[in-house]
Each structure stands twice: as structure tokens, then as C-alpha cells.
């Protein structure tokens, strides 16, 4: 029915109705509308094409569009569900929904596993873990010798790789996170419940009311 009604508001490519996204995620319709305001801001920061490119994502995270970071790359790749090099609005909302305080812990654990499974093999391997520790050291002021890094990685593997096959599988990861819940602390963003205050979007909200 909506096909006969021509809206004057122009949406970005890949726009999806807030009511649809709210039904699929822990977000309310108002929160999705506010996220659209944030999405528009980020996606217009370098190329105004209504899609978030990697440099726009880096700019939003680091205030520097050229700053590369292994973990930001991983987050971007996971948000880019269609794997076409850009983040569309629906992808942005569905991915951020994992970080909602009301999202299920299981979803956060799975997302973190995929994040750390750098080569998408279905396992976190020792080599990947060492690569991530070195990437973290590279961006921080911590200066640890290779021996210390090896010791930390070995100890972590002894604790997490319960069956001792040299890689952490999803079930081992889940058990490890249950014992160390701080590992997924960064998978919850309290900001997401305040987003309507930070990005009020009166225009879009009135549009939803009009259609009801």
C-alpha cells in the first residue's frame, strides 16, 4: 500500500524501516530512528553517499580517517554483513544491536569469538592470538619482550584450550568467557540506551506517526 504514497524524505541507500529493525533487535523504534541520525552523520563524513566506508568508520572511532587498526578492521568486516566493502544502515543497526545492554550474552560471546577468529576458520588459533597481542602492544605504551608475550599467550591457551588441541573452539571460548566475564565487557555499550537523547530525530518520528 505504501507504494502509492510518495514520501518527500530521501533516505540513504540500504535504508530499512525502523519498525522492521526494532522488531528484529533489542532497539525501540525511537532508538533506531536516533541511530539513523548517527548513521547519516558518520556516512557523510568523507563521501556523502549514505554508506559507511572504512575511512569514515576509522574517522568516527579515532578522529583520524587514515589510522589503521587490526581490531577496527575486524569490527568493520563483521558489520559489513553483505561483504561489499561498506556498511549499510540495516547492517549498522543489526550489528550494533549485539552491543545493546539488553542483547543476549550468547550473542555477545559469539560476536567476540568471530572478532578474534581472524582468519575465519571457526577456531581462535595460537598464532592469531599472538598476532592480536602484538597489534595491541603496537598501539599502546606497553612494551613487552617476545618472551613475555609468549608466556602470556601460552598461559591463556592453557586456560582456554581445554582439550589441548592447540586452538580455541566456540564451546571452549564460551566456557572461558563464563569464567572471565570481563572479556566481553566491551561488548556492551551503555550509550545505546541513551541514543535518543544524543540524537533526537523529530522529523523521522513524525513520519512514523503519520503512517499509523
Amino acid at each position: 500500500m505504501g507504494c502509492f504514497y510518495s514520501k518527500t524524505t530521501k533516505h540513504t541507500p540500504g535504508y530499512e524501516e525502523p519498525s522492521v529493525l526494532a522488531a528484529e533487535t533489542p532497539f525501540t523504534v525511537s532508538e533506531v530512528e536516533a541511530l539513523y541520525e548517527l548513521f547519516k552523520k558518520i556516512s557523510a563524513s568523507v563521501n556523502n553517499d549514505g554508506l559507511i566506508h572504512k575511512e569514515e568508520f576509522q574517522l568516527a572511532l579515532f578522529q583520524n580517517k587514515d589510522r589503521r587498526n587490526l581490531f577496527a578492521d575486524r569490527i568493520f568486516d563483521l558489520f559489513d554483513i553483505k561483504r561489499n566493502g561498506v556498511i549499510e544502515f540495516g547492517e549498522f543497526v543489526r550489528s550494533l544491536s549485539v552491543f545493546h545492554p539488553n542483547a543476549q550474552t550468547a550473542a555477545k560471546i559469539t560476536f567476540a569469538f568471530r572478532l578474534y577468529d581472524l582468519r575465519n576458520t571457526g577456531f581462535i588459533e595460537r598464532e592469531e592470538l599472538k598476532e592480536m597481542v602484538l597489534a595491541l602492544l603496537n598501539e599502546s605504551e606497553l612494551d613487552l619482550s617476545d618472551d613475555v608475550v609468549e608466556t602470556i599467550v601460552d598461559k591463556t591457551f592453557r586456560d582456554a584450550d581445554v582439550n589441548g588441541d592447540g586452538r580455541i573452539d566456540p564451546e571452549e571460548w564460551k566456557e572461558f568467557v563464563m569464567k572471565n566475564p570481563s572479556l566481553i565487557k566491551n561488548m556492551t555499550l551503555p550509550y545505546l540506551t541513551d541514543i535518543t537523547l544524543a540524537f533526537p530525530s523529530f522529523v523521522v518520528r513524525s513520519e512514523v506517526e503519520d503512517s499509523e
Binding site: A60, L96, A135, E139, S140, T156, L183, K185, N186
Partner: peptide, 26 residues
């Protein structure tokens, strides 16, 4: 916490690249 006492994932979770709260800063 002394780094040796930490597990590797705790260290990694400190990365700025994993701190998405920066997306919401104006």
C-alpha cells in the same frame, strides 16, 4: 595489573579499535 598476570584476551580488549563508544562522541 601486571601484564604477566593477565590473560591475552584481557590485554586485547583494551584496544581502542574495540572501544565503539567513540562512535557516539560528538
Amino acid at each position: 595489573t601486571a601484564p604477566l598476570a593477565m590473560n591475552a584476551f584481557e590485554l586485547i580488549s583494551r584496544s581502542q579499535g574495540l572501544n565503539l563508544s567513540s562512535l557516539f562522541e560528538k
